[in-house]
Design a protein around this nucleic acid. Sequence first.
DNA 1: GTTAGCACTCTTTGCTAACGAGTGCTAAAT
DNA 2: ATTTAGCACTCGTTAGCAAAGAGTGCTAAC
Lengths: 343, 343
Amino acid sequence: MLTDRQLMIFQVIVDDFIQTAQPVGSRSLSKKSEISFSSATIRNEMADLEELGFIEKTHTSSGRIPSEKGYRYYVDHLLSPQRLNKQEVHQVKSIFVERIYELEKVVQKSAKILSEMTNYTSIVLGPAVRDNKLKKIQIIPLNDHTAIAIIVTDSGHVENRMFHLPETMDSGDIEKMVNILNDRLTGVALESLNNKIYKEVAVLLRQHIHHYDLMLSSIVDTIKMPASEKLFFGGKTNILSQPEFHDFDKVKGLLNMIEHEEGIYDLMRKNEAGISVKIGRENNNSAMDHCSLITASYSIGAEQLGTIAILGPTRMEYSRVISLLQYLSNGLSIELSKLYQNE
Amino acid sequence: MLTDRQLMIFQVIVDDFIQTAQPVGSRSLSKKSEISFSSATIRNEMADLEELGFIEKTHTSSGRIPSEKGYRYYVDHLLSPQRLNKQEVHQVKSIFVERIYELEKVVQKSAKILSEMTNYTSIVLGPAVRDNKLKKIQIIPLNDHTAIAIIVTDSGHVENRMFHLPETMDSGDIEKMVNILNDRLTGVALESLNNKIYKEVAVLLRQHIHHYDLMLSSIVDTIKMPASEKLFFGGKTNILSQPEFHDFDKVKGLLNMIEHEEGIYDLMRKNEAGISVKIGRENNNSAMDHCSLITASYSIGAEQLGTIAILGPTRMEYSRVISLLQYLSNGLSIELSKLYQNE
DNA sequence: GTTAGCACTCTTTGCTAACGAGTGCTAAAT
DNA sequence: ATTTAGCACTCGTTAGCAAAGAGTGCTAAC
C-alpha cells in the first residue's frame, strides 16, 4: 500500500524526528543525501502519508511528525536491528562481572545501567517468587511477647515478619510447631502453601499444640506478603530531560504513576515472552500518552521470571533500545540459569 | 534591636508571603486589619527591615519577601506553636491504629501520612540497627554450591545474604560453625561484631573446621551491610506543586538528590535531639537552595533511633510542620517504646 | 513621628509588524 | 504522467512599544 519512495521518505522522517525532536519539513528533507527529489515532490508524498495516517502536522503550516500509527508501522516493518557497539556490550556485561548470588542485586543493577545507557527510565519487575518452593520455616522468639517468623525459599528468597506470641505458648511448643511445618511444607510452592496449611497442617497442629491458631495466622501472613513482585526503577528523573516533557502536568502525572506504582504492574504484565512495544495510547493509561514502553521478559528455561522495560517518549530510539533489551534479557536469563542450574 | 512595630510588620510579611507566595507591598499591608498605620509609614519601616537584612526585594520596585536571615529570625523568635486540629491529630494517630510489629512499616507509613498532610516531601531515616544486638545466626544450604546466611537482631531486624559454599564443607561442619557463632556472638552489638569475630571467634573456628575462612567472610559481609540506615520518602512529587519550583533545573536537581539519596544522609544526621530547622543555604547543599528542612528525632528512652523530616520551600508553613513533627516524633517514640519495653 | 503626594522603576499585558519555516496548489518542464 | 518551480497563504516566533498596575523612595506638610 505504500510505494517504496513513500516508505523511504517516511523512514527518514521518523529517524530525523527521533533524533531532533523537531517537526520535519519538505525542504530540510530534500537536502538529505538519501533523498534526490525536490521539496515539492516530497510535499506531495507527505500529503499522501498524512492522509494514510502515518504522519501529522502540529499546526496547519508546520512540518510533519510521526503519528502513533506511524510509529507502530515503523516498529513493525522498518526497524533494522542495530548492533550494539563495543562500549555498549561492555556496559551490559558489567552487570554480571561480580559473581552474583542475589537476584535482587542483579535486577537492581540492571535497572541502573539500563537507564544510564539510554537516558530513559527503566523499570524492572523482579523475579516472581510465587513458584518458589519452601525451603525452611523458622521461628525465633525475641522476648516473652514477640517472635519473628522467617521463611526461606529454594531460590534464596527470604521473608520475615514479627508477630505476637500467645502467652500460653512455650519454647517446646514452638519447636514442635516449627518441626511439623517444615516436615509437611518443605518443597511446596509458595502459592499453594496457604491452601495446604489450612487443609492438611492445621489438623495436625491441633492435635499437638494448644492455641496454635493465632501463631499460624501470623505465619500465613508472612507467606502471603510477597505475592506481588517488587518493582525497581532506574533514572526516574531522566524524564525531565526529554524536551517533550517540558510540561509540568505531564511530568507530574508520570512521576506520580511511578511513585505510587499505580498501573505499572498492569503495564508490565503482558507476559508474552520476548520483546513487546507499546506506543502511546496502546498502553491504556492516560499518564502514558506520548510515552512508549518497551518490555522484555527474562526467564530460566521455559519459566518466565520477570520483565525489564524502558519507558520513554514515543519519540524513542526504538532500534537501540530493543537491541539493548534483547541483549540484556538474554544475559539475565543465562546468568540466572547458571545460578540455579543445580538446585 | 527591632521595635515592636517592626516586629509585627515583619511577622505579617512572613505570614502573608508563606500563604500567598507573592511579594508583599506596603499598600496591601496597610489594608490588613492588624495594621493601623499608613502605607508610607510601612514603607519606612520596610526600608529599615531591608537594611537589617530581614526582607528583600525581587526587583527595585517590587514588594518584599523574607530573606533567609528573616526566616531564621522568624523561626527562632516569632513562631507561635500551633495547635493541631482534631482532623490532624486523628490522621497522625491513624499511623498507629493497627497493632504494629514491624518498625519499617510504621516508619514508611509515617512518611506517607506526613507528606499527605503537608503537601511537602517527607523523609524518614529508619531506625539505626548498629546498636542492635545479635539474636541468632543461621545458615541454610540451598544446594551443593550455595547457602544463605541469616542474622536476626534483638529488635527483630533480619538481614540475609547468599554465598558460595566451599566444596569441602559438609552439613556437619556447617552445624558446628553455626553453633560456635551463636554461642559466642549472641548478645553482641552489631557494630562490634566484626571485631569480635576476627579477634575471638576465628581462632576457635580454626580448631574445629577446615576452610572456615571463605564462609566466615561471607557472614561478615552479611553483617556489614545494614551499617547505613534506610531512607523512606513520601510525596516526592509534591515538590512539583510548589510554585517556587516551576523551574526545571531546580526540580531536576532536587529530584536527582532524592533519587540518588546523595547528601540526604548528611542532611538528616544532625543528631541533635528534638527539632531542628535548616533554612536554604544552611543546608550546605546547592540543590537545597530555596528549600528548608525540618528534622525531628525519635527515640526510645535516651537512645535516638532515627529521624523524620519535611523538605519544602523556604516559604514553608514552619509553625504547622513543626507542630506536626513534634507530635509525630513523640508518638513514634511512645509506640516504639511500648513495642520494646520488655526485651 | 506620621502621612499624603508625587515622580520614578519595574513587571505584566496586549497589540502590531516582520520574519521564517512550512504548506498546498497551479502551471510549466521533463 | 511525473516532477519541479513558483507563488500565495498560514501559523508560530520574536521584537518592539505603549499602557496599566503595583510598588518604591523621597519630600513636604500635618
